[in-house]
């Protein structure tokens, strides 16, 4: 049996080779590059020590992108979970048209975020934009939606949340369907109000669904790239960049590969620490229930 296991273990060798070449090696190489001033194509470059990292601390664009990334991650997660749970509760009731509604809400999850970004451009553009046309119907002035950094960040967060809220909805629907009726019946006998039933019966039993949904939304939001590229390209100025788009810009447009690597490595650490903390916290809550 031992020999059999040894032969069996060979089965994961191809996967491990791929991970080593295309994840671990680039990660190490990225750490090495982050201490250099490489421009991305020349043969020679110098070691510059920690200067890429110290530069980041005073780089307004990096700090802006860092805050934006936390907003994209955190606010999207909040919106998607609140809306997702609300939609799940609503669509868990029996009525005509609920199947169609579920399909419609889930459909955008399938669409490339890049394309969704371009479609949203038709809504938010100043000239002939669909939203401004609606405002005009109510006699309001047209708004230049994407000209202000803060509004742009808010719009990107909302678009991302609405596009992917279907994921949370489906997870919560599965969670709701897994709760046995007897819990509600027991609560009814104890005279619980609907609000109390929600707070003390349903939410604790949904905790595993919350963990899954938050993890997926958080990782998706912190990595936001395509929608930003399509809708604002990080603009106006650098105001709506996430760390992902900033790495891209620093590498290609500013030809600053060493610095881009350093931003990438810091992003990796941030996402790893941030999402691990939240997942640990949620897991602990699950156990307590």
């Amino acid at each position: 049996m031992k020999k059999r296991n040894r032969v069996m273990n060979l089965f994961y060798i191809p996967a491990l080779i791929l991970f080593s070449i295309f994840v671990i090696y680039p990660l190490c190489k990225g750490i090495a590059l982050s201490f250099t001033n490489w421009n991305g194509y020349s043969q020679t470059y110098k070691m510059v020590g920690l200067s890429n990292y110290t530069r980041m601390l005073t780089d307004k664009n990096v700090i802006r992108a860092f805050i934006n990334t936390l907003i994209y991650g955190g606010m999207s997660t909040l919106l998607q979970n609140v809306l997702g749970l609300a939609l799940a509760l609503f669509l868990n009731q029996k009525f005509k048209g609920r199947a169609v509604t579920r399909t419609l809400v889930y459909l955008p999850v399938m669409i490339a975020p890049l394309i969704m970004g371009y479609v949203m451009y038709f809504f938010f553009s100043f000239n002939n934009g669909a939203l401004n046309d609606l405002l005009a119907v109510f006699g309001k002035e047209a708004v230049d939606w994407l000209s202000d950094g803060k509004t742009a960040v808010a719009i990107l967060t909302i678009v991302n949340s609405l596009q992917f809220v279907g994921i949370s909805m489906v997870i919560y629907l599965a969670g709701l369907q897994g709760i046995a009726d007897m819990y509600y019946e027991a609560a009814d006998i104890d005279g619980a109000t609907p609000l109390k039933k929600f707070r003390y019966v349903m939410l604790p039993l949904l905790q595993p669904a919350v963990t899954s949904s938050v993890t997926i939304n958080l990782i998706g939001g912190l990595k936001l790239f395509d929608i930003i590229m399509a809708l604002t390209s990080g603009g106006p100025g650098y105001d709506s960049h996430s760390l992902s788009t900033l790495v891209h810009r620093t590498y290609f447009a500013s030809e600053n590969a060493g610095y881009a690597s350093a931003i990438g490595i810091i992003t990796f650490l941030l996402i790893a620490v941030f999402s691990n903390l939240i997942v640990q916290y949620l897991k602990k809550k699950e156990v307590e229930m």
């Binding site: 991970f19 990660l27 590059l33 991305g40 990782i219 760390l243 590969a257 992003t267 990796f268």
Partner: peptide, 21 residues
Amino acid sequence: AFVMGIMMVPPLSILVSLYSI
């Protein structure tokens, strides 16, 4: 555990060196 850890690596953080490879 290693494979699950790979899932946490955001592609953007290694894109620069991945591209050069």
